[in-house]
Design a binder for these strands. Structure first.
Lengths: 229, 229, 229, 229
DNA sequence: GATGAATGAGTCTTCATTCAT
DNA sequence: TATGAATGAAGACTCATTCAT
């Protein structure tokens, strides 16, 4: 009769741990993202990150040299794929500029707003003072690329006479901000508040697009801003 | 009869350290605000707050029972005066609704955007998960009051036929967000980045107002945008 | 009957801690010296140092910024007073050079060998690779100053014809080493070993002095040892 | 039939990795010695030892059960061969006692001083408190055997009338210490210091021998060295 | 009230050791 | 055997909070 401590034959024998080098970084990043977004950088304990990823604290250090390192990896690695997928999606379209604008806003929401990216944005905004190079990275890789995408759509529309000329740089800020703000809000204040008079996202997007197209509509003939359908 | 703490006219000039006792809480709040905004909640050390306020660490605890307490006081006490002043300013005007809208945005910027309030907003957004009641307070006392103010202007304009009917709730989000976002940005990402293609605030505001008024302009013929439901 | 927890009247009331800013650094240094010498740098825990000094771990950091800092302070602050006292003692004498040499060795032993300095020397020797600037400091402030003292005695004796010319630089090494070695030994290997055939320190010193004076004694006839170059 | 591990003459040259199994322990010991001497016991990481030996960390544990074990093996296995070779060398000579003494010092330097043994001595001295049995081993196998060798030479010289009687036990300390000290120095303080007024080793040894022989010279005729009272 | 020395729980980080592969 | 991923106990260091002065 085998002692229970010495591996008895016939038991599935659950090993104390598993060797999953390939999968670990992603799992850690994932766990870290959740916690960073939920608690912020400082209030997130590496113990918790490790626990959530199902590993020990030491394991974390096999993949990321420090908390700061992990944080940067979380930001960088979660952002780039999203951005690239988004750019791909927008680039494929060959609709009219007005349709493309609609695409842009809807895609933006499903690619960013509805993901965990706003949580990252919240982090970066909050920690910009402590991690300036992260802020720069974010500005370069997210904000500017995003703005360039919108800019190209607007410029195309103007070039083709579909839109009237506008102050494009100002428009970029004015028209992306509502999306970003709404997304940020849903990841910070909103969850804490009693359900108020929130506008559903579809209505929000539709109204936004409506105004944007209205602002871009040629003025030649009187009387119509922003009509889509 | 003036309270001895609030500088009463006609009192013989008291030496600085005599006024201090009354002034202490404000000085501490001020120092704390600066540091919280600059470094975030967790990364701010009470040592530094005390040092910046020119008192010892122990003194801080005579006025605020804990770091959390201080944080909440910073948020609450810096916000309410701003909000009230803003409401007063807007209420005094008796211009047309369109002019009032312009007032609203310009006032908003000078009363909020150009102050340290966006820094507080950044804090609240970032720490909402850790201080939910602060988030609720902020939502109630800042976001909603602000929205109500804008709402009242729009409603007045619609009622008086100066504006066409729009989806007001959506508009509140859409038209306040760019202001907030711009203000947040200037307090987080922007200071870290090389000077890029920023739009000056005047141009920003002017374009914004332009679009808003365009969206609200009554239509000669039917078939307008911005449906209500 | 007062609860034992609430300070009952009439008890001397031992405070949880005492405020002794002036005395603390010395006490900490003292405790640290003991432990560093006993266990070596790495094996000494700051918890233990603090405990031995009768304070909490945090207190230690009020006075020394890091373990390394504490270590350096231990070495520097324990060494300089010893060296200076020693130099003073030797300088005061106005005996013959031979007598002065005897003084030198006896003083050396009572000022250094019999103190905790050899323990520090052991530390510095062992950690030279990890703390090179400490090694340099030790070389400058202890080794060289010591050697200079002995050199001045020998040179005086030679100048006055009391000693014969010798290779002074070599002598410095040859004649100080036995003292240092013996002192090191007593602080490292010896305490671990069964009492063996150790030579009492007086006999050790006497024999040493005997040989040194013999080597320095002028020769009646030519053909002597200890060339100069 | 030669064991496959010990390189037998006449075997066809085996590829490196085939010889490895037998060589592993030695390679590990070698790597460990270097690192222990350079950094000290605690500051040496087994990762680094394994890496320097070109194996994985796990492999190290196939040969040594723990860091302590490895450390002891490093000390023991590096010392004994050196000591034995040295004893053999000295035993073979049949010169006069004076010549033998010269041999002893010169051999000592080339066999010990110029090897990594002083590094080990430094280690043992520094870690004596933490590894007392190692200190005892060192005392027995190095210090005492060494002293016995010197003692036998001196005794022989005295017995044969070549040397005058002296306090042998004291002499052992006095005459070995300079060698040890010089060797220790070269492995600790010296590498950290700007090149100072160091005496070349040959001059050092020559002067040392000179003094030793002077102290041992018979006193028959007046006017020789080593005179005190 | 005001001070700042003292505290100690809480975290990050390291590294000897184990063990699944 | 050999590997190196995984572990977790241990220790340096921080900082909000307390309290003797």
């Amino acid at each position: 009769m085998p002692s229970p401590a010495s591996s008895p034959a016939g038991r599935p024998r659950s090993p104390r741990w598993e060797r999953r080098k390939g999968a670990r970084p992603g799992e850690l990043l994932d766990a870290a993202l959740d916690l960073f977004v939920e608690k912020g950088y400082a209030a997130t304990r590496l113990d918790d990150v490790a626990a959530r990823a199902g590993v020990s604290k030491g394991t974390l250090y096999l993949y990321y040299a420090s908390k700061e390192d992990l944080f940067k990896a979380v930001v960088r690695q979660n952002i780039v794929p999203l951005i690239e997928a988004f750019e791909r999606d927008v680039a494929q379209s060959n609709a009219t500029s007005a349709e493309l604008l609609g695409e842009f806003f809807r895609q933006w929401w499903s690619s960013f707003g509805a993901t965990r990216l706003p949580g990252i944005a919240k982090l970066v905004v909050g920690e910009a003072g402590n991690f300036p190079e992260l802020a720069r990275f974010f500005q370069q890789e997210v904000v500017l690329r995003n703005a360039m995408l919108l800019r190209s759509i607007i410029e195309r529309g103007i070039r083709q006479g579909e839109f009237r000329p506008v102050d494009i740089d100002a428009c970029l800020h004015l028209w992306i901000s509502p999306m970003v703000m709404r997304a940020l809000w849903e990841h910070s204040i909103l969850p804490c508040c009693p359900p108020g008079l929130e506008v559903p996202i579809e209505r929000f997007l539709a109204t936004h697009l409506d105004f944007v197209l209205g602002a871009l509509a040629p003025r030649a003939q009187p009387g119509q801003s922003g009509r889509v359908s």
